[in-house]
């Protein structure tokens, strides 16, 4: 009786810990497989990279412009106008867009669009026993399926971050113009506050977001079970876990970056 109650109480926590552990192991195996010859994943890497670019460029464009214009743009502008300091909007965009919003929006769009497609694809293959067939045919699914998706998503999220930065800042430009202010002061405060640390920090962080999305989505796809319904459940869980992973990792990364580079905390 006591054991049964304890089992029911602790088994969800145990399952979560097991899944996290399995994802860590998959990360290790993926990195080892990527580095160890042979390297048969070139073609799949290119096709996954182009697939992610094709799927994500437009949703990301809309999301970043709308988000940049709406949230940090108009709302921060409304606040700054009260103090007659709308020119500080450029400086604020370094903090808001480069450090936080561009990486976040990129990761959310990539997880929601490309990550779910990966989970659905691998999940369907798992259900149709294609992954088992691959293994039986002597093909390592980690090397041939996970590694190219892992590398492609890392590269594509890193590059898309720069794209998101440009369109996010364009949202800030639109907000400045909406307030009838000239753009010179916006750019002046933007470039005064911007630093290369902010830029590489942002790109590195987003690249690692890509790694988290790839591992979570591949793992959930490759462990899907229970037919079509199981694939749907795996996709749903992949998005939720990827978001949680991104939010947690963002906190750790940003705090570490600020602690190791205190000069970027100074608002000029």
């Amino acid at each position: 009786m006591v054991r049964s109650v304890a089992d029911r109480a602790f088994s969800p926590a145990r399952n979560v810990l097991e899944e996290v552990g399995d994802m860590m192991i998959l990360t290790g195996r993926t990195i080892a497989s990527a580095l160890r010859p042979p390297y048969p994943y070139g073609g799949e890497f290119v096709s996954q990279f182009l697939f992610a670019v094709r799927l994500c460029w437009f949703p990301l464009l809309i999301s970043t412009v709308a988000f940049g214009y709406g949230a940090p743009g108009l709302q921060a502008a409304n606040f700054l106008v009260i103090f007659g300091a709308l020119d500080r909007l450029g400086g604020f965009f370094v903090l808001a867009s480069i450090r936080e919003f561009a990486p976040f929006v990129t990761a959310i769009v990539l997880a929601g669009v490309a990550g779910t497609a990966i989970t659905a694809d691998l999940g369907a293959r798992k259900i149709r026993e294609e992954l088992d067939a691959l293994q039986v045919l002597g093909v390592d699914p980690v090397k041939n399926l996970v590694v190219p998706r892992f590398l492609a998503l890392m590269l594509v999220t890193g590059l898309f971050n720069i794209y998101a930065l440009i369109f996010g800042i364009f949202g800030g430009v639109l907000a400045t113009l909406t307030n009838g202010a000239p753009l010179g002061p916006f750019w002046a405060t933007f470039f005064t506050n911007a630093s290369t640390t902010d830029l590489w920090g942002s790109v590195l962080k987003t690249t690692l977001f890509g790694a988290i999305i790839a591992i979570v989505c591949c793992y959930k796809g490759m462990t899907a079970s229970g037919g079509a319904e199981g694939v749907g459940r795996a996709v749903n869980q992949a998005v939720v876990i990827a978001f949680l992973g991104i939010f947690a990792f963002n906190y750790v990364f940003t705090q570490t970056l600020l602690a190791t580079h205190p000069e970027i905390q100074v608002i000029r």
């Binding site: 369907a124 293959r125 149709r128 026993e129 294609e130 088992d132 067939a133 691959l134």
Partner: peptide, 9 residues
């Protein structure tokens, strides 16, 4: 030979 053939789609 898997149950449904497990051909690569």
């Amino acid at each position: 030979l898997f149950q449904d053939g497990a051909l690569f789609g």
